[in-house]
Design a protein around this nucleic acid. Structure first.
Lengths: 189, 189
DNA sequence: TACTTTTGTGAGTGATTACTCACTTTTGAT
DNA sequence: ATCAAAAGTGAGTAATCACTCACAAAAGTA
């Protein structure tokens, strides 16, 4: 490896660079508003290379989403290992802020995909892991002896989704942390 | 007016027709994914007419949004005239379902604009009426003697936003009505 | 070194984009 | 009926879109 390794991308690194630049632009301007040409220019790469690696634009989106999904799975694993039902619910509430700090662009992209074309929306929001997330919350509310664990879960997911949207617009994290603590207080049984 | 009035659009009606077709397509496929060419074809109109009436594509979006804003203002007026603070809050919770039944496409479009390019997002989500809506909720929670009316309001708006998103994806209204009643129960002080 | 495979390039493809403009038709007022 | 203003047309514009392909450089393997 030469001394220029930090300046000049070795060949294989270009693939990763395409992914990170595309993630940034998709999150910032939306999938439909980001052209493969712009991605290639900002990544310092020929446009053809995108198609060599990812077949087409949607293949690039697939690659981005699958990379980011891992952090969601890791967080979910942490939740499953938490023995206290109440703490599991708190972890769920913390999720948007936590994943936002870790991978802001990725989460912005995933939430925005819901508002792209119906085909793209369907493709990325019917994941198995989300159903497991839902099941874990239902069992947690059941363990706490709540009357309607399913409805509690729906309400909480709705809250978490809303928090994600809020984090996207608002960069005042202190304000949102205050709101999160306020919400947690509602779950003090 | 001829007997064909229902089949052949009179000249001025074409403008309204462009708006309703564009609203439908923007809501269904997203603003960026809907071309002026497609709009003109589905509206049975020359493409040039769109630009004669609305200057450019964004002008067409403006026209759509301003038409739809009226229904939001009407609903807000109804809320202001409600003397019971608790009933005002219930009206706020009912808002997504109510406006969704009345003008589904419009509301889907407005919520999706948040995820378009930052410029478009800024333009349509800093409205004065939204601030008034927020103020009304804060005063309602204050009237009810709640400890943190500002945080209660943020939480409720987050809930309402989440409900809107849910209504967009899910067409099972009974399920959502059940959830809405469940949420209302949380506000039984 | 010699050879194959992988990675990378950049000019070029046809299709589609938002938008223009010279022109015609319809409308409404006199 | 006359005529100007408004509404409407459709062919045409340059720019951009996702994507292809013949070719070259680099990397892996022996």
């Amino acid at each position: 490896m030469s001394d220029y390794s930090l300046l000049i991308l070795s060949m294989t690194l270009k693939k990763d660079n395409i992914i990170s630049v595309a993630l940034e632009l998709f999150a910032k301007h939306g999938y439909a508003n980001t052209s493969t040409s712009k991605i290639s220019k900002q990544a310092g790469v020929s446009e053809g290379l995108i198609f060599r690696h990812f077949v087409n634009k949607e293949g690039l989106l697939d690659a981005i989403v699958s990379v980011g999904t891992e952090s969601f799975e890791a967080y979910f694993e942490k939740m499953k290992n938490e023995s206290s039902a109440k703490q599991r619910i708190f972890l769920a509430i913390d999720f948007p802020l936590s994943i936002m700090n870790e991978n802001k662009d990725y989460w912005n992209l995933v939430t925005s995909l819901k508002y792209q074309s119906p085909e793209i929306s369907k493709k990325y929001h019917n994941s198995e892991i989300f159903n497991q997330f839902e099941e874990l919350l239902i069992s947690s509310f059941t363990a706490l002896g709540l009357e309607s664990p399913e409805l509690e879960t729906k309400y909480l997911i709705l809250t978490i989704t809303g928090l994600s949207g809020l984090l996207k617009q608002n960069d005042n994290q202190e304000e949102i942390k205050e709101l999160i603590n306020f919400i947690k207080n509602k779950y003090q049984y």
